[in-house]
């Protein structure tokens, strides 16, 4: 009964995600109707420049949004389970900004030597940002819940400023990084999107194989140990997966702010704590939010674009304040 209910809700989320993705192909600098998009996609017709707009701009963007939105959301779901803290996310633990800074440094020092070099810079940054936050919030071997978030936000702000500082002294080449820092789908190309498809699918599938272990991590440590669960080992594995997910996403679209923080919380409001549904829901919500933020950002001030990262922060911060109040931090 309850299970059917949840499956229905998942189907609704799935349909919403597909509808929004389709809408993102229609809206933008030029508007194409539902049938225009079908004609272009299926019959390869060119209606008022639609072939170029849809295939070369909107589809890569949408694809990138789907991949990265779901990865940000998943990554934060994992972090929230590991730390048993609804305010944990790649953004609030300083991982996004650190990752973005290292992509910036990597590109300006070594360039983009191979397909996966961005991913490597990004992963190093993610690991470093996370490690600094983690060790700064330890108190006698224990992680203090509230300190973790406060420290994480401070570390995040530090890395973000460091990126801006570096950019001030760099030439034109890096000016596109301004939007990268805020998180954008603007520079997505079909090449950049297809480069991450395989790594994303691998990491996401591994994550979904660990649902049972992620569920057990939500028990308090002493309980988990007493039933013979190797808490430390699985915490490390799950954190590593979360860092990988974030690193892949940041290397493509930059720091997409609050999407990761909000999505798992909305998913949990609808589906509860059991990760069987919540993980999938969280990634679907991540997709919906990212694509919506991108659509809003590109249609409200045509021809100017507002980075979806900024839109997500504008929506995300009030929500952040709301959970702070609700959880009485």
């Amino acid at each position: 009964m309850i299970t059917n209910h949840k499956i229905n809700k998942l189907i609704i989320l799935f349909i919403t995600a597909i509808t929004i993705c389709y809408t993102s192909l229609m809206l933008g600098f030029t508007y194409y109707s539902i049938t225009d998009v079908i004609d272009t996609l299926i019959y390869k017709q060119d209606i008022n420049g639609s072939y170029f707009a849809i295939f070369d701009i909107r589809i890569p963007r949408m694809l990138m949004g789907v991949l990265c939105g779901s990865m940000f959301a998943l990554s934060s779901s994992l972090l929230q389970s590991v730390f048993r803290n609804p305010m944990a996310s790649s953004e609030t633990l300083g991982i996004n900004s650190a990752s973005a800074l290292f992509v910036l440094i990597g590109i300006s020092l070594f360039g983009k030597s191979s397909e996966y070099s961005l991913l490597c810079y990004s992963l190093i940054g993610a690991a470093l940002g996370f490690t600094i936050t983690l060790f700064s919030s330890l108190d006698q071997g224990k992680i203090l819940r509230v300190r973790l978030i406060i420290v994480g936000i401070a570390i995040g702000a530090f890395f973000k400023s460091a990126s801006q500082f570096i950019m001030t002294f760099q030439d034109e080449k890096l000016s596109s990084f301004v939007s990268f820092l805020n998180g954008t789908l603007y520079s997505s190309t079909i090449e950049s999107a297809s480069a991450i498809i395989i790594p994303s699918i691998i990491v996401v599938s591994i994550t979904f194989c660990c649902i049972k272990q992620i569920d057990l991590l939500q028990l308090s440590d002493d309980v988990a140990i007493s039933i013979g669960f190797n808490v430390t080992r699985w915490k490390i594995i799950i954190i590593f997966l979360a860092l990988l997910l974030t690193a892949i996403a940041v290397s493509c679209v930059g720091s997409l702010g609050f999407i990761g923080l909000i999505s798992p919380n909305i998913a949990r409001l609808i589906f509860g704590y059991s990760n069987k549904y919540t993980l999938l829901a969280s990634s679907l919500i991540g997709i919906i939010l990212t694509i919506s933020a991108d659509i809003i950002g590109r249609i409200i001030f045509i021809p100017y674009e507002i980075a979806p990262g900024i839109i997500s922060i504008i929506i995300g911060v009030p929500y952040f304040l709301y959970i702070m109040r609700k959880l009485r931090y």
Binding site: Q218, L219, S220, D222, V223, I225, S226, I227, G228, F229, N230, G272, Y273, S274
Partner: peptide, 26 residues
């Protein structure tokens, strides 16, 4: 190993904690 120990002895800590919205059976 922890997993072998768990077959010999079980421990109920003082204030065990779990998510609230799982069923008793789970």
């Amino acid at each position: 190993p922890k997993i072998e120990l768990a077959k010999i002895l079980s421990i109920l800590p003082q204030s065990p904690d779990s998510p609230n919205d799982i069923t008793v059976k789970q």
